[in-house]
């Protein structure tokens, strides 16, 4: 792999908890000496957060589609009536 990809892999291990304690210390020392790398760690963390938000948004859409299907499909009429009756 390219050097930059190796660095990304290493940062991933650091951020997602795959580094042993001595390697962690070494990595943290490296960050102090290499601000460029420290910056990459920051943006990679942001990226994971965005992927999480992206995944969650899609899952919510999938769940809403299931809801719509259960509450509009003719074959699910019994289910729908049973649930709606609870709120009368």
């Amino acid at each position: 792999m390219r050097t930059s990809l190796n660095e990304i892999e290493q940062i991933e291990k650091y951020l997602l908890g795959g580094l042993k304690s001595e390697d962690r210390l070494l990595f943290q020392a490296e960050l102090l000496l290499n601000p460029q790398k420290a910056e990459n760690v920051y943006w990679q963390q942001k990226t994971y957060q965005l992927i999480q938000a992206y995944g969650r948004k899609q899952l919510k859409q999938e769940i809403e589609a299931v809801h719509q299907k259960l509450f509009t499909h003719p074959a699910r009429q019994n289910f729908r009536q049973k649930v709606l009756a609870l709120f009368k």
């Binding site: 792999m1 990809l5 990304i8 991933e12 943006w43 990679q44 990226t47 965005l50 992927i51």
Partner: peptide, 19 residues
């Protein structure tokens, strides 16, 4: 795995640049 890291790099750069 290689593609995963390539994508991670690409998105990371976009996030950085746009932010």
């Amino acid at each position: 795995a290689v593609q995963k890291y390539k994508c991670l790099e690409k998105v990371r750069e976009t996030v950085k640049e746009k932010s």
